[in-house]
């Protein structure tokens, strides 16, 4: 049950042609794609997931939908790929010169014997705007819009991608970089927080508090001779202070020291 009409909840098998011109029952043109293994029929129209975790699943869903549509548009099965190129070119020619391609190749002639009319049409014809429901955007032949994309994609993005005749493919290729970029944008935040932790400025990294605390504790255990709890409150490791080669001459509010390195510091090595 990969496809479901978001209006009347009617479901369609993967590869079904019934939905290509809209839902036969209600005329709705929005379908959600449900990957294999997720069979719950009563999926809400507005998924409750927060946008951040759902973005990757959105991209996957868009990608699968695009792949499905692409297969449907080009003939539906992988073993027919050798003829897809010819079909595409012939369909292009047909769109320009109506009957020019009739009986051009044996394969095209043989095709109707294995396909019904709808399949042949879906494989070879570009759907005309008139065949789409009235509220459909004219440049968008099939609106396979997983409901969750409404939350994450901006209308301008959809409009831009809809300019292409292969709109869904364009959207899928665009979705992946967008998802990647959102992932990448999260990584610098994380590394930035960790770099803050390494210099001990806790006020900037509330979101990384647990890691920062662990890091500070570890650093304190290993290196600190003076721990600044807050300005004016200090804990001192007397053994560390005693063992230091250098002499702490000034202590700043943020925990930094000014030190005087002994003149013979390098002689010990």
């Amino acid at each position: 049950m990969p496809h479901q009409c978001t209006n009347c909840d009617r479901t369609f098998d993967d590869g079904s042609k019934e939905m290509l011109s809209g839902c036969p029952d209600c005329g709705g043109n929005k379908f959600q794609f449900k990957p294999d293994g997720t069979d719950s029929v009563d999926t809400p129209a507005e998924p409750p997931e927060p946008p951040e975790p759902s973005s990757s699943s959105v991209a996957r869903t868009v990608g699968r939908t695009a792949a499905t549509v692409k297969d449907l548009m080009s003939g539906g099965s992988g073993d027919q790929h050798p003829t897809d190129q010819e079909t595409a070119t012939s369909s292009g020619r047909r769109s320009n010169a109506g009957a020019g391609n009739r009986g051009t190749t044996p394969q095209d002639q043989a095709a109707p014997s294995r396909e019904d009319t709808a399949q042949a049409s879906a494989r070879s014809d570009v759907i005309s705007p008139e065949e789409l429901p009235s509220e459909t955007t004219t440049d968008e032949p099939h609106q396979f819009q997983p409901v969750s994309t409404d939350e994450t994609s901006t209308p301008s993005t959809d409009a831009t991608t809809a300019q292409s005749t292969d709109a869904t493919t364009a959207r899928s290729t665009e979705s992946d970089p967008r998802t990647d970029s959102s992932d990448e944008s999260a990584v610098p935040d994380e590394t930035e927080a960790r770099s803050d932790a390494s210099v001990g400025q806790p006020e900037t990294v509330d979101t990384e508090r647990p890691d920062l605390k662990e890091l500070r504790d570890e650093l304190n255990d290993q290196f600190e001779s003076i721990k600044v709890l807050q300005p004016g409150q200090y804990e001192l490791n007397l053994m560390e202070l005693y063992d230091r080669e250098e002499y702490i001459v000034a202590l700043e509010e943020d925990g930094r020291y000014s030190i005087q390195v002994p003149e013979n510091f390098h002689d010990h090595d």
Partner: peptide
């Protein structure tokens, strides 16, 4: 006053470090 107390605290901490350094 708090400011004086904080400064005294910081100087005292420096003083402990100095004392430990002298001991060494």
């Amino acid at each position: 006053e708090k400011d004086d107390a904080v400064r005294r605290s910081r100087e005292a901490t420096e003083g402990v470090a100095e004392a430990m350094h002298w001991l060494r």
